[in-house]
Amino acid sequence: MKTSRKLQRATRRWLTLERDGQNPAAEESLGRVFRLLPMPAPSSALARRTLARLGFDPSASIAPAASHWAFRWAVSLALVFSGLATALYMPTLVAALRLKGGANWVVDLGAGFLAAVSRRLAAGVTCWEVISRAGATAAEVVATPQMLGLMLATVLFALATFRILAGVVVVERSSNHA
């Protein structure tokens, strides 16, 4: 709906300015009409056909990030370190698994894992309590009428400054096209 009204308003304004002979304003206004007009698009296969005619294989294209040398080095180093770690620790792991008889060691492993996770969660809850207390203290300070008023004034000032700056940028861009 907004786009419909915007296009109508922009077109009305442009035609009015043309009729009244206000050339610079009419030109700027027509620019707005064109920005609201959808741009026709070619079929999705055109790019692929063009690349094929140029001798590129579109299916062979790789993601831009993956073609960067740093990415390739990082992956290579990660593979090397993984291999080294596996070679160093695998014998110890295999030996440890061999010592564990039957299925009991699986249960012990699972219980140990749950216990470790619970301990970590408990530590996390303690941290959260500290943060929560700090937040409550801060909220008490901010909830005073003076602080609220100051925060509101700051937000309004920031909004007004942003609008003014945005207007300056738009005017500068328009004058660059003149």
């Binding site: 741009m39 790019a47 690349l51 590129f56 579109p58």
Partner: peptide
């Protein structure tokens, strides 16, 4: 595939002018 990127960026603007002509 830098040229593929150029193609993706400029294909539609170029097409939109030509099709109206």
């Amino acid at each position: 595939m830098a040229y593929e990127h150029l193609l993706e960026t400029y294909q539609r603007p170029v097409f939109s002018i030509i099709v109206r002509m």
